[in-house]
Design a protein around this nucleic acid. Structure first.
Lengths: 363, 363
DNA sequence: TGTTATTGCACCATCGATTGTGCAAAAAGG
DNA sequence: CCTTTTTGCACAATCGATGGTGCAATAACA
């Protein structure tokens, strides 16, 4: 009500209105007034003035002066799959809880774009960066290092900065064991029935392949090779890999390890093109979690990386700022078929009040 | 190589190194040097110096001075479903293409948090805001208006600012017709077999309910009521609604209209708790698109809002800045069961080179 | 050669906050 | 009553970039 012009009030406006100096106003508003021995009277007066004028700090000005912006970045390759979007959601919550402003950006798996994007973030003086699923971690690291920007790698290892990663090998092994066990119930299994699709030459894929082979070799008692279809992280390439396999073998492998939900979409596209055919006898293990994928018309085992825990560790590492880069490993969770987990969505306040039956069931 | 200290170079550093004044350096670096009649020689010299020193503009300083930050915000309720995460992905691309820095934030469907979040964005002097799926559009609008911040509503109507929305009524009608037609093939259908789950008292839900009823009434030739289960946008509430229905009727409705993929997750949770039972005879229509949902073991028709087009129109509206708020309507797309669409992911450069068979198939 | 135009750039205030320092007035101590 | 301490605040520099203005040096013209 007290604002006449539509311009935003500054400390100078409040200074004039209150009769105090701008530095006093500033101290009152940023909470350092006790340290500066401003009287409680003056502080109260200024605070209520600020409220009446709807004052809000210009964070660009503050950031410029104090070279702290209050922004934390999260760099993901892409948003639109459940893994990264759920990570973004969790990140936002954790950043806000620490009084920081989250800024999520995507590098689109292009080393050049990744660097440019990080440069931009740095140009806004972000205070810290979480790097998740980038193509060229060390390139990004160098950009950060030059700018003196604290950063951690999430779910991918970097030699140059601390990292929190999933146990890809162990997770893949457990996942592979699960699908082997399940598929074996459907009849005799041969090593050729068990194929991995997706990934490329990155750390996570290599580890998962190792885990996959470990489980497979243990199961069959023989070394097996030629069971990996590298497709990158692209639905289209994965679809083509499935088409090739199908053209060659006239069927899908009975037991499929799929490297990520993005690759899984490639399988969906393949299936969409083969509409009449049933693929009821396949068993899929996917290193990722998506609730809808879990209910597909064939058994889908999933390994869910613990994004929430990884981010939490990431924040801790940033605060601790260890001398030398450390690497922490977090276990992914094996998710059985037909499982719809609760997620970050469930933390949000519900606009519809809990009903009676809610209390009855969960009381 | 030329950077000794780890501090970032400023125009003053370049000024000293080049012998030119800071204002000259500034003009050269921001491209206004022709207007300021700086010689090409000087400009070249400064530009190569800047490159050598890895100079990048401090965008906080620029923003402070010019009260333009280059930031555009997108406010979504939550990230982690395909609709909003895909919207975020598209938004990022479109913003970058316009030379802007996208900032995606979530308001978590809490009016208070929505306002706070927008206040924060304003404090960073963002230049424009896209508001998508907020609980209290007009509250957010007032915050924007006070700050003189240009903004548009995406996929939700607001009386106070321009909006680009989906044709919820028409889309729902088409979707309902599709599931009715499909379900009718499975035998005689009664109005009681056709139920809508999800939504609450917001514009989109009301419109969808209207479209749902229009299609249903046309199909059965009678007015039908008591076929709406309001659950909010919460998986848990939706799950409970299904449980209640199931407890009452000992079955699911044969023909289900689900208001959004978030509500659909509630159905998954219900199904996860009823593991042995088959729900093979149901037909689902969901006002949202998710590729995995499209391949579930029952027919799933989906209506996909055209986020990309809505955002494009949003940018256009911001540029045109019409006198009075306008409202534009975009048709959603009906997606048949077992369809895996290409999406923003397919625009990104693929790290794995196209193989021979790729060329063969698409050549 | 003298005068006007043009070129090429430097100077300086400014955006809105933060923070080290200094200095009166009031309070405390002797 | 005089000195020392404490209280309460104002002043001014600063963060890095922008853009209006002014002023030499050079070029163009008569």
């Amino acid at each position: 009500m007290a604002d006449q012009s539509s311009k935003k009030a500054t400390i100078y406006d409040l200074s004039v209105l209150s009769g105090a100096s701008a530095s006093t106003v500033s101290a009152v508003l940023n909470g350092t007034w006790q340290k500066r021995r401003i009287s409680a009277d003056t502080a109260d007066r200024i605070l209520s003035l600020a409220k009446a004028q709807r004052y809000t700090t210009n964070l660009q000005a503050r950031g410029l002066r104090s070279s702290k912006s209050g922004l934390v970045g999260l760099l993901v390759p892409v948003y639109d799959n459940r893994f990264f979007s759920s990570m973004a959601q969790t990140f936002e919550g954790q950043a806000r809880a620490r009084g920081l402003s989250p800024m999520v950006v995507s590098g689109r798996r292009d080393p050049e774009e990744e660097r440019r994007t990080v440069e931009t973030l740095i140009a806004y003086s972000i205070d810290a960066l979480f790097i998740a699923g980038v193509t060229d971690p060390d390139g990004v690291h160098q950009v950060c290092a030059r700018a003196g920007l604290p950063h951690v790698n999430i779910d991918l290892p970097g030699k140059l900065a601390s990292s929190v990663i999933s146990d890809n090998r162990g997770g893949a092994q457990v996942l592979t064991e699960a699908i082997l066990r399940h598929a074996a119930q459907g009849g005799m299994l041969s090593p050729d029935d068990v194929v991995l699709f997706g990934g490329h030459d990155d750390h996570a894929s290599r580890e998962r392949i190792t885990g996959f082979h470990a489980a497979k070799n243990a199961f069959f008692g023989v070394e097996s090779g030629d069971d990996i279809e590298i497709t990158g992280y692209s639905p289209r390439m994965t679809e083509l890999a499935f088409e090739r396999f199908y053209a060659r073998e006239s069927r899908l492998p009975r037991c499929l390890f799929i490297n990520s939900s993005i690759n899984f979409e490639g399988l969906l596209r393949f299936m969409g093109r083969h509409d009449g055919e049933a693929f009821g006898d396949i068993v899929v293990g996917c290193f990722d979690y998506d609730p809808f994928a879990s209910f597909l018309p064939f058994p889908v085992y999933m390994a869910k990386p613990n994004a929430s825990e990884m981010l939490k560790r990431g924040f801790e590492l940033l605060e601790a700022a260890p001398e030398r880069p450390v690497l922490q490993m977090i276990e992914p969770q094996l998710i059985l078929p037909r499982t719809a987990l609760v997620g970050p969505l469930d933390d949000i306040r519900d606009p519809v009040a809990p009903s009676k039956s809610f209390d009855q069931r969960h009381g």
